[in-house]
Simulated scan of single mutants.
Amino acid sequence: MKENKQRTNGRWKLLAVIAVCTAPVIASYFTYYVLKPQSRTNYGTLLDPSAYPIPATLGTAALDGKPVALDAYKGKWIMLSVDGADCGDACRKKLYEMRQLRLTQGKDMDRIERVWLIPDAQPVETMLMREYDGTRMLRVKPDAVRAWLPVDGGTVPADHLYMIDPLGNLMMRFPKDADPNKIKKDIVKLLKASRIG
């Protein structure tokens, strides 16, 4: 009788040890296969470049009407914004953030071009052009840009900032009302990963 009790206690202890040892393994499998945590470290949404090639139908042109293709900036990262020429508060905020994000890259800032695509024929305010000197302001066909740039549900291209890599591939979209500090971290990673030599 005493021997049976010891045997039962021994079995319970063995089961407790097995449970303690296997719990982390079971928890990790549960987390990986059931909870499926996000493993990404980027803030912006990575896009499949092959799904969004720069269309030849964009019809981009400088403000003076001379054709300028986005390919003209190949070899550099392009930080891209889309807004009408009237450029309300949200547009001005994006232009300001684009300028500041480029400046915060220090010695790497020359690897970034800022491009503002303007999908209308309205005049751009002279003071705005001076304030954001260095931003490439290009007219674009509105239908072509809407068909090209992917958006989050319930948004339009004007709600986002985009990044195009030095090979001309659209590769990242930042969310509406994006946090500039988080965008900066993504840009630092992109520039570091694409540095040659």
Rank of each mutant, 00 (worst) to 15 (best):
A90P: 05
G10D: 03
L14T: 13
E131I: 05
G88Y: 08
M137A: 08
D89S: 14
T126M: 07
V156R: 06
K2Y: 05
K192P: 02
D133Y: 10
L117E: 01
D159R: 09
V20W: 14
R7Q: 06
L103A: 02
T31D: 00
I78R: 08
D165T: 05
P37Q: 10
A61F: 09
R11T: 06
P166S: 13
M1H: 08
T8G: 08
R99P: 00
L95E: 14
D120G: 01
V151Y: 09
L46T: 12
A61K: 13
N42L: 15
D48H: 00
R11E: 01
Q100T: 10
R114S: 10
G84H: 11
R173Q: 15
R136A: 15
V188W: 05
G197M: 01
M127V: 08
K74Y: 13
D165H: 09
M171V: 09
R173I: 04
D159S: 15
P142C: 06
I26F: 03
L191S: 09
D179E: 15
T135K: 02
D110S: 15
L167A: 15
A23E: 07
C91S: 11
P123T: 12
I187H: 02
P157D: 13
G75C: 13
A62D: 13
R136D: 13
Y52F: 11
A178N: 07
T8A: 04
D48I: 01
N4I: 12
I118K: 00
V20A: 15
V82G: 02
L14N: 14
D48L: 00
L35D: 05
P142I: 03
N9K: 15
G154M: 06
N4F: 02
L15M: 01
A51P: 12
T135W: 00
M163K: 07
L63P: 03
D133A: 15
V145Q: 03
R92C: 04
